[in-house]
Nucleic acid binder design. Structure first.
Length: 657
DNA sequence: AGCGTTCCTGCCAATTAGT
DNA sequence: ACTAATTGGCAGGAACGCT
């Protein structure tokens, strides 16, 4: 007779293959919904993935739009972090990058990377096969642990593949932890690995987990799946990303990636079984919430004594779905001790041009004293946020598909939810922020236009790059990234490229790249050395307006910005730039004045061949490449690359530069 | 502090794209 | 051909870095 049985089936490869699929999609740009700009590099990614792995992104994406910019991380570092997020691996990171990597991991709230600081020193010495031959007592004891660990694993796995892996396994040791990692030998070649010196390579495929230290410590680490109730060793079920490595490489369900962490002197024993099946089939393990809560406690404890900032509450990719919501319910003191991102974001300093100057999330109650600086706390406006509820009576109301939030002058507008168009009607001391709550931002936009400005033509918003703020009937366009306000939308669009780098303007003389064409042009003029600005008082020429202006002020004690023209701007001869009314009167070499009242003239010392040849032509003739080649042939400023007929040119920096 | 360089943004002309 | 949108040069102030 067939007994009734409950069947439990677990796809042990699921998490790994899922991660792989996500990474593949990222590589192909599929379904990427966010662009992270770091320095001059753009990284396409998925918000869900980033927010799941990074507390920073988790909070950032609650307010940010499709483009975010990080200026506190280096591009190459962020690339490594992103690779980790999508692969659970830090692969072949050079030792000198580790410190920066860890720092960035802390800032971004990526626990694994942040906690690499724990084994860092040992890693450095171990990398490439024990460079320094560390022989301290800790390492020796850890080596024993490591041997034990090897035996534990080898007993259940004697495949040649894993034997090979054991030969390369690296114990990672710190003052607080010893961590042994059974690492599979990845046969999949890292693309750039061939050039790397293996001595400089560090490969992690593990995840650091903190656990509550025992009241009576100094217990020997014992890998155990069924710890006694009061045992200080703790089994955490984690279908971590680490399991990806294992499961992809070996599908045997009995195989586990075992991380054994042993504390010393504050003993801490943690065994992580990164077997995805464990969490489902093994019902005897410590409940997730308890485990995490315990971890939180130890985090707090450890932070008192150790220079680490473990963040066990950070959401982790592919973490047990039961863990995450439970961790949110951990007692407040535990959370506050283990969520550094809040404090962290308050400390982030955005600076420079084209970078985020303001915090995305702020908990500061500091009010703005400068007129025109409206600020709103994120909790006030984040759609769907629970935080809104407590402010409901005071300011929020919903009608006609719009959410209206009334703010006082001290509120902050910097963290308004993106994807919405925001309008404000300014009263004496209040601001009504109207946020269309329909899903389609354009829908709300349209409604606004039709209701309030029926004569105003609907504006199609191709890029979700700005808010609109109406103050006393005047429209200000506010960049969603840096919150700069613009009177002209074109100015904002031009500015936004600083964030998005949708277009790049490389210098044709050097390697520099600029987000604005004008920046490049001005920079290139420095290469050519051309001096277009000429002082009419003394005839001196200068490379740009600022130098010329400075000269007129200092040398002639005059104001170049005054009514009288004290300088002239000669047309650019060395670069192919847009020509305006740079018209030289064909009948004479007298300068002409354009519509703006600017006097233009051709430098008599450098007669322009084109002007002479084309003198009968009344139409303004812009300086083109041919003109430049003819004119500058002796100077060899530009040489057309005739070999391939392309539009590429060989640029030779003139001697004047 | 002075100087040079770069960044920023309103303005506007030239160019390009769309109808 | 006309219009709208985009591009990018310019002015002039501000910020920044160096000496």
């Amino acid at each position: 007779m067939e007994a009734k049985k409950l069947i439990t089936a677990t796809d042990t490869q699921y998490s790994g293959s899922l991660l792989q699929a996500l990474n593949d999609q990222r590589m192909q740009g599929l379904f990427c919904d966010v662009t992270v700009i770091v320095e001059d590099r753009k990284f396409r990614a998925h918000k869900n993935i980033l927010s799941a792995c990074s507390t920073y992104f988790h909070q950032l994406f609650s307010v940010a739009g499709q483009v975010v910019e990080l200026n506190f991380v280096k591009a190459d570092i962020f690339a490594e972090i992103l690779n980790y997020i999508y692969s659970a691996k830090i692969v072949r990171v050079k030792c000198e990058m580790l410190e920066e990597l860890i720092k960035s991991g802390k800032l971004l709230g990526v626990p694994f990377i942040a906690d690499l600081g724990i084994p860092l020193s040992q890693v450095k010495s171990i990398s490439g096969g024990v460079k320094d031959g560390s022989t301290d007592s800790q390492s020796s004891s850890v080596s024993k642990e490591h041997e034990l660990q090897k035996e534990t694993v080898s007993s259940s796995d004697t495949t040649p593949e894993n034997k090979s892996a054991k030969d390369k396994e690296m114990p990672v040791i710190t003052e607080a932890f010893s961590l042994s990692c059974e690492e599979f030998n990845e046969k999949k070649k890292v693309p750039d690995s061939k050039d790397e010196d293996s001595d400089d390579d560090v490969i992690f495929c593990s995840e650091i987990v903190t656990a509550k230290p025992p009241p009576s410590d100094k217990k020997e680490a014992v890998p155990s799946q069924t710890p006694p109730p009061n045992d200080q060793s703790l089994d955490l079920k984690k279908s971590t990303s680490s399991s990806h490595v294992q499961l992809v490489q070996n599908t045997k369900p009995s195989n586990q990636l075992v991380l054994k962490m042993t504390s010393s002197p504050q003993k801490l024993n943690v065994t992580v079984h990164a077997n995805a099946s464990t969490q489902v089939t093994n019902g005897s393990v410590v409940p997730s919430s308890a485990a995490i809560n315990t971890s939180s406690d130890v985090t707090s404890s450890l932070q008192k004594n150790l220079p680490i900032s473990a963040n066990v509450n950070a959401p982790k990719l592919l973490q047990n779905a039961n863990i995450l919501p439970k961790t949110e319910l951990v007692e407040g003191n535990s959370i506050s001790a283990s969520v550094p991102s809040i404090t962290l974001q308050k400390n982030i300093s955005f600076d420079g041009s084209g970078v985020q100057k303001k915090q995305v999330v702020t908990f500061s109650q500091e009010s703005s004293s400068k007129p025109g600086e409206f600020k709103i706390k994120i909790s006030d406006v984040v759609s769907g946020s629970n935080k809104e509820s407590h402010r409901e009576p005071e300011s929020k109301r919903i009608m006609d598909g719009k959410k209206i939030i009334t703010l006082d002058t001290t509120s902050e507008i910097e963290s308004l939810s993106t994807g919405c168009k925001v309008y404000a009607n300014i009263g004496e001391d209040t601001y009504d922020i109207v946020i269309p709550i329909k899903e389609d931002p354009d829908e709300g936009f349209s409604k606004f236009d039709e209701d309030d400005f029926p004569n105003r033509k609907r504006m199609k918003v191709k890029h979700d790059d700005h808010y609109e703020l109406i103050v006393d009937g005047r429209v200000y366009y506010i960049c969603i990234v840096c919150k700069r306000s613009y009177v002209c939308l074109t100015s904002l669009r031009r500015h936004f490229n600083v964030h998005s780098w949708e277009k790049k303007y490389p210098c044709r003389y050097c390697e520099r790249v600029f987000p604005l064409a004008e920046y490049r042009t001005k920079h290139e003029i420095h290469h050519t050395g051309e001096r277009r600005y000429q002082c009419l008082t003394c005839g001196s020429s200068f490379i740009n307006y600022q130098v010329m202006s400075s000269h007129i002020r200092s040398a002639h004690s005059l104001d170049p910005a005054g009514d009288s023209k004290l300088y002239r701007l000669n047309p650019c001869k060395t670069l192919q730039i847009r020509q305006y009314s740079y018209i030289t009167d064909p009948s004479s070499n007298a300068p002409v004045i354009n519509d703006g009242g600017i006097v233009y003239d051709i430098d008599p010392d450098k007669p322009e061949p084109a002007s002479e040849e084309d003198a009968p032509s009344a139409a303004p003739k812009p300086v083109n490449w041919d003109d430049i080649f003819l004119q500058q042939s002796n100077q060899n400023i530009f040489k057309p690359n005739a070999s391939d007929g392309s539009t590429e040119f060989e640029f030779v920096i003139p001697e004047s530069y």
